[in-house]
Design a protein around this nucleic acid. Structure first.
Lengths: 205, 205
DNA sequence: GTCTATATCGCGATAGAC
DNA sequence: GTCTATCGCGATATAGAC
């Protein structure tokens, strides 16, 4: 089994803190937050259980760090993609392609980010919710813009946005590197599906 | 707070076993399997912790029962919908409408069904996986049929099926009865989106 | 900063009276 | 079939040596 190295946490120092973060991401993704023991996390980082508490106050704080950095990364990826280029169709396709690719490539982190929210403490949760709103907002604006210019045909913009975001996020649940598709292929497929959902018609396909 | 009564488990007897099942569904959906204590489940059923073990061998067996019945119900709903009626477009719309509605209306059960699979024991997990294949199969056949008759235009049938199933399932993650849409409305919206994903063109909309 | 050892707690599951 | 009481374990987190 290969250990997925995730550059999302590449900048974390000291080294021990980063190793703990990576171990925690893997463990949380495999078993879930509550089923993961601090012994397990510390073990993956090559340390004793006690060493964890030098770098993080609690297990929950470790989860919060993962969740925060993960959300920031995925939103950043989305923002870069839409800024990139072109008309609404190009922007929507780029956004979905990038967002899906992130959820597939970083499915370990993404799983924690998307499915362990309930394990966060109250104030930590509140801070994460703020970040989450952005991704939906970005995609909604692209759809709105496309409808305004007549490139898209969408009756329920809010609902369709929700569906597109939902489609992208769920990739984290089912994606496996052993599966038959690469992150790039899924991104491409989903970009096309999102355009169809938006009522976009290219050359008459 | 109102207790969601879920007819999925209406037939379970004796009464105490059903109350435990319903308590477990709620607790698992709110906190997750591992964060739920047997004391919590028993409390919701109005019993002492020990009474749980008269009706179920372990906490995991309780999860398995929920997962099995839940999967059976959702697949049954899907099967009834596609049998119903019409051409491929009608069948796809009916299937998505019904599947989405089930995940919204029974979002508590659905959340456990879709997101607590990893907590199942090995043989229990294997038995559930068999059930899960059916729902994908049903939707894939509808898409295939529609492509064969020329009503749909889909290049990657497997991938598009996966996306449609994924879209429906993710409803369980975000749906809230306090949200702005009813299960019926979401079902209707998603049925239309699925038709678009399938490349279906009605009257020139 | 990391270790070994351990305090303290609450879990899943069982025993035995009724 | 349900209760009260409890066993045995493993969890998070801390103390104190190095």
């Amino acid at each position: 089994m290969t250990v997925e190295t995730d550059e999302s946490f590449g900048g974390v120092t000291p080294d021990a803190a980063r190793r703990l973060l990576l171990g925690a991401v893997q463990a949380f993704a495999e078993r879930g937050f509550h089923a993961t023991t601090t012994r397990d996390i510390a073990g993956r980082a090559g340390m004793s259980p006690a060493a964890l508490y030098i770098h993080y106050k609690t297990k929950e704080e470790l989860l919060f760090h993962i969740s925060r950095v993960g959300h920031e990364r995925s939103v950043a990826v989305l923002e870069e993609a839409v800024e990139g280029a072109g008309d609404s169709a190009g922007r929507l396709a780029a956004a979905v392609r990038a967002f899906v690719r992130w959820h597939a490539e970083h499915h370990t982190t993404a799983r924690v980010v998307q499915y362990e929210l309930a394990a966060l403490g109250e104030e930590h949760y509140a801070r994460i919710v703020v970040l989450r709103r952005r991704s939906e907002e970005i995609l909604r604006e692209v759809l709105q813009e496309g409808v305004a210019t007549g490139q898209f045909a969408v009756e329920d913009i809010r609902g369709t946005t929700l569906a597109v975001v939902s489609l992208c996020i769920d990739v984290a649940r089912w994606f496996s590197p052993e599966g038959r598709r690469t992150p790039d292929e899924i991104g491409e497929l989903y970009a096309g599906l999102a355009l169809r959902m938006a009522g976009y018609r290219d050359g008459g396909r």
